[in-house]
């Protein structure tokens, strides 16, 4: 589904991603861990199409297409979804409006008829139940005045409504209380299927108790330094990242 080859990106003239290699197949869940500032969000944003980091080398192939050549909104309509580490507040744009416009843009792209207001509301209310969210949030502006945890929940609500093929969750677990973590994980798990893939960026092993990854990667200093199975996360939890750098892998081991 996704194949990242020697991806390099810089912010200004500062290299942040220094040659990322990663293969994600349909049905797989990959966790990316790594110290603060190692480039996890930069990678997520580059995949979604953000331009404040400039791609300076490498390639990304998504479902056979050159992902980097697609506009941000085209990537989204092709099924790429990014749940932001810090979801932005957008006063004046209704949450429900955004959900509907987003869903219909995607349906149109796939040649499906747009949903009318009734069908759409029925669908969204159903998903809100799954996310244990209060319906009143639909009628507020996007993320405006939402608590940190509510914002994260709202990101996952959008995800379960849009049903992406490739979901990238950037620290969706940060700032969630224990109950919310369960709800969010439940939402994410409800989307797991053989034709979907996920990349979870996280600092905590705890999330991986709820969403079992197939692979765990350690991103440090702009490179994937280690890759392994779920046991790698446990190891990191015990040992921290100090030893990772020492491994000093030439090019990462990708599954």
């Amino acid at each position: 589904m996704l194949s990242i080859r020697n991806l390099q990106a810089s912010v200004g003239d500062k290299p942040i991603l220094k040659g990322i290699n990663l293969d994600v197949k349909a049905g797989e869940v990959h966790a990316i861990m790594g110290p603060n500032g190692s480039g996890k969000s930069t990678l997520s944003n580059v995949l979604a199409g953000r331009e404040n980091a400039t791609v300076t080398g490498g390639s990304v192939t998504y479902q056979g297409k050159d992902l980097l050549a697609l506009a941000v909104e085209e990537r989204a309509r092709e099924g790429v979804f990014l749940a932001f580490q810090y979801p932005v507040e957008i006063p004046g744009v209704g949450n429900v409006y955004l959900l509907k416009a987003a869903l219909n843009a995607q349906r149109k792209h796939r040649g499906l008829p747009e949903l009318d207001a009734m069908d759409f509301l029925a669908l969204v209310k159903d998903k809100m139940k799954l996310m244990e969210m209060n319906e009143s949030m639909l009628y507020r502006a996007v993320n405006e005045g939402f608590s940190g945890g509510e914002k994260k929940r709202n990101e996952i609500l959008q995800m379960v409504v849009l049903e992406p093929c490739l979901a990238i969750l950037d620290e969706t677990d940060s700032g969630l209380d224990i109950d919310a973590l369960k709800v969010v994980s439940h939402g994410v798990n409800s989307l797991r299927s053989p034709d979907r893939a996920m990349i979870l960026v996280t600092h905590y092993q705890r999330l991986l108790d709820y969403i079992k990854p197939d692979f765990v990667h350690v991103l440090s200093d702009g490179r994937i330094q280690r890759s392994g199975g779920p046991e790698l996360a446990l190891e990191l939890e015990r040992e921290g990242y100090a030893w990772v750098g020492d491994a000093g892998n030439e090019g990462a081991v990708t599954p």
Partner: peptide
């Protein structure tokens, strides 16, 4: 706001809209 603009587009909303 570039960040808001980017956010909306990551949800599939066309750049102009």
């Amino acid at each position: 706001d570039e960040e808001q603009w980017f956010y909306l587009r990551t949800r599939g909303i066309a750049a102009d809209l």
